[in-house]
Amino acid sequence: MTAPSHEPDTRGATRVQVTPDPANASTGELIGQLTEQLSSLVRNEARLAQAEVTQKAKKLGAGAGLFGGAGLTAFFGVAVLLSAAVLGLAELMPGWLAALIVAVVLFVVAGVLALVGKKDVAQASPPLPTQAIAGVQADVATVKQGLSR
């Protein structure tokens, strides 16, 4: 490994940012720091909000898909129940009992899908970036406290 060179870099401009000590900094330097820090803070909070909304939207989509699956499964359960009624009345044989058992199993599956979907939708609601909002409120409170000194 080579030792760091103190010669200027001729390949391109480099920017070294030196943060002055707040006790010895001028008003202009402090305002510059404040502007940089606020813009960085706003960008970070916006990224957090975007990530949070994306995560909640995914959960909402999964929950809606599970509700759709529950509805389709319930539809097939009704179709099988109708088949059981037809078989029971037409034949008066044990074939309808098998169809009835299948229908009950389909309704149980539909119930499980509906409960899981409800849980996912409840976790994704409301689709607001609550963590980001709380972070911004805390940041505003900190800035207000700092300005009041």
Results as ranks from 00 to 15, higher is better:
Gly117Val: 10
Pro127Met: 09
Gln131His: 07
Ala141Gln: 12
Lys118Asp: 09
Thr130Lys: 11
Lys118Glu: 09
Val140Cys: 00
Ala141Asp: 11
Ala134Met: 04
Ala141Arg: 06
Pro129Lys: 12
Asp139Cys: 00
Thr142Ile: 00
Val104His: 02
Gly111Lys: 04
Ala134Tyr: 06
Leu115Glu: 09
Leu106Tyr: 12
Thr130Asn: 09
Asp139Glu: 04
Ala134His: 03
Val140Gln: 03
Gln137Met: 05
Thr142Lys: 09
Ala103Gln: 07
Val140Ser: 02
Ala132Glu: 09
Ala132Met: 08
Thr130Glu: 14
Leu128Trp: 10
Ser125Val: 03
Pro129Gln: 12
Pro126Ser: 12
Val140Arg: 02
Val140Glu: 03
Gln137Asn: 14
Ala122Ser: 10
Gly135Ala: 11
Ala110Leu: 08
Leu128Lys: 15
Pro126Ile: 14
Val104Gly: 05
Ile133Pro: 01
Ala141Ser: 11
Lys118Cys: 08
Gln123Leu: 07
Pro126Lys: 10
Ala114Arg: 15
Ser125Lys: 11
Ala124Thr: 09
Ala114Lys: 15
Ala110Pro: 07
Lys118Ile: 01
Ala110Val: 08
Thr142Asp: 07
Val116Ala: 06
Leu113Arg: 05
Leu128Pro: 02
Val109Gln: 05
Leu106Asp: 05
Ala122Pro: 00
Gly111Phe: 08
Asp120Leu: 15
Thr130Cys: 02
Ala103Thr: 06
Leu128Val: 15
Ala141Pro: 01
Pro127Lys: 05
Thr130Pro: 00
Asp120Arg: 13
Lys119Gly: 06
Phe107Pro: 00
Val116Asp: 05
Lys119Ser: 12
Ala122His: 03
Leu115His: 12
Ala110Phe: 09
Val104Ile: 14
Val108Ile: 14
Pro129Trp: 13
Val121Glu: 02
Ala138Glu: 08
Leu128Ser: 15
Gln131Ala: 14
Ala114Asn: 15
Ala122Asn: 07
Ala114Leu: 15
Val116Phe: 04
Gly135His: 13
Val112Gly: 02
Gly111Leu: 10
Gln137Ile: 01
Lys119Cys: 01
Val108Ala: 14
Gln137Arg: 11
Gly135Val: 03
Ala103Met: 07
Val108Tyr: 11
Val136Lys: 00
Ala122Val: 01
Gln123Val: 06
Gln137His: 06
Lys118Met: 08
Pro126Gly: 06
Gly117Ala: 05
Leu113Gln: 15
Leu128Gly: 05
